[in-house]
């Protein structure tokens, strides 16, 4: 396997590890805020690593650009939905607003 293939595989694997970490955080953390923290931080970084690995694997600049757009859209969606979930948790009394 060439160097770029090895790099791509490593990036994909580490992306998957971050996703596993985020999912473990979702399942094990006690309250909404810490679960959101685990999900958005770990999953977005995992998505970045996976997109980079795929871009390296494809070897095409066009696909790399499209994957960058995919990552940005994923970031936006995660950010806004995280904010809305946190707002809802505070408003419904489930969590105390951070001081």
């Amino acid at each position: 396997m060439s160097l770029s293939e090895v790099m791509a595989s490593l990036l994909l694997l580490s992306g998957c590890l971050f996703y596993v970490a985020g999912t473990v955080g979702l399942l094990r953390f006690p309250d909404v805020f810490s679960r959101l923290h685990a999900l958005t931080k770990a999953d977005n970084l995992g998505l970045f690593l996976i997109c980079t690995g795929l871009a390296l694997h494809s070897g095409s600049l066009r696909i790399a650009g499209l994957l960058l757009i995919v990552w940005i859209l994923g970031l936006l969606a995660a950010t806004v939905s995280c904010h809305l979930i946190a707002r809802r948790a505070v408003r419904s009394g489930q969590m105390e607003p951070p001081a």
Partner: peptide, 12 residues
């Protein structure tokens, strides 16, 4: 009324 949502919609 959430400002983030407006920004997201104008892009998405």
């Amino acid at each position: 009324e959430v400002p983030l949502v407006g920004a997201l919609l104008s892009l998405v």
